[in-house]
């Protein structure tokens, strides 16, 4: 029995097809990254797995049960969106409240301590910084000692150290045997955490493979430079080395050359723009 089992699931919102016949299986103890641009269907998929929505067609199973049954959700952890914390409640109260739903919650003090929130227990959540809210959101997903955790964009908007600290917490949870399904549109985040990557766009699974295999397929680089006329240019290229070699040999004047890995969203944009949608399959 898999931790998460999605078979032939379709979900529409009016005329928009958010998920189109999607199948996905996540085994116990796996750490799977769900990648895709905004609006690809990632959050819809998570909302089906967490029982918040019902599929129009197909079946969703959480530990072999329908996630719309509250009993199935006793082993599920989920991050609330940081903007959605009840602003007037104190940090400690929110943790007590969420933990109170589970049979064997992590004691509030212990959890706050673990996430470096122990000094903030008496603060109202509305007064927390973005990073503090993120930490609280991830802490809330773990308060019930879940077997499966769904993390929706867990570190969006965090600085580098904040992100690294949360990544450590997620890795520690996974190392203790937990199953993680996380969404991100940052390639870097999925790269840092996931063993297996599922790429979705326009409601369909484009690729489902090991991290290394996926990275090879979306290995697009973004090259920025200022040309002789002082105009900033941006190129998305598959082989940045060859691009730079050509640039230099062509003798064109340029300055401020910058190369970095393109985000998956940019890679998608590039692929679609070239009428090259099949390239990821």
């Amino acid at each position: 029995m898999s931790a998460v089992e999605v078979s032939g699931v379709t979900r529409r919102f009016g005329t928009v097809v958010a998920l189109d016949d999607v199948s996905l299986e996540v085994g116990h103890g796996e750490l799977v990254g769900l990648l895709g641009p905004n609006g690809a269907g990632k959050s819809t998929l998570l909302s089906l797995v967490s029982g918040q929505r019902r599929p129009d067609a197909g079946e969703v199973r959480l530990d072999g049960r329908d996630p719309r049954d509250p009993r199935a959700r006793t082993t599920l952890g989920l991050t609330p969106q940081e903007t959605g914390l009840p602003a007037t409640l104190r940090v400690r109260e929110v943790v007590d409240f969420v933990g109170g739903h589970y049979p064997d919650p992590v004691p509030t003090g212990e959890l706050l301590d673990q996430f470096g929130l122990d000094d903030l227990g008496k603060r109202q959540t509305g007064s927390l910084s973005g990073g503090q809210k993120r930490r609280l959101a991830v802490a809330l997903s773990l308060v019930g000692r879940p077997r499966v955790v769904l993390l929706d964009e867990p570190t969006t908007g965090l600085d580098v150290s904040g992100r690294a600290a949360l990544w450590d917490a997620i890795r520690a949870y996974h190392a203790s045997g937990g199953t993680v399904l996380l969404t991100s549109h940052y390639l870097e985040e999925v790269q840092a955490l996931a063993e297996r990557v599922v790429v979705i766009d326009h409601g369909t699974v484009l690729a489902d493979d090991s991290l290394a295999a996926i990275l090879r397929r979306v290995g697009v680089r973004r090259v920025q430079l200022t040309d002789g006329d002082g105009v900033r240019q941006e190129h998305l290229v598959a082989d940045s080395d060859a691009f730079v070699r050509d640039l230099v040999t062509s003798g064109t004047r340029f300055s401020d050359l910058e190369i970095r890995g393109a985000s998956l969203e940019e890679a998608f944009g590039q692929l679609v723009a070239h009428g090259n949608e099949g390239a990821l399959r």
Binding site: V106, G162, D168
Partner: peptide, 14 residues
Amino acid sequence: MSPVTTSPATAAAS
């Protein structure tokens, strides 16, 4: 940001 310490407290129910 203070470090997030990893302890077995969040150990999965497995």
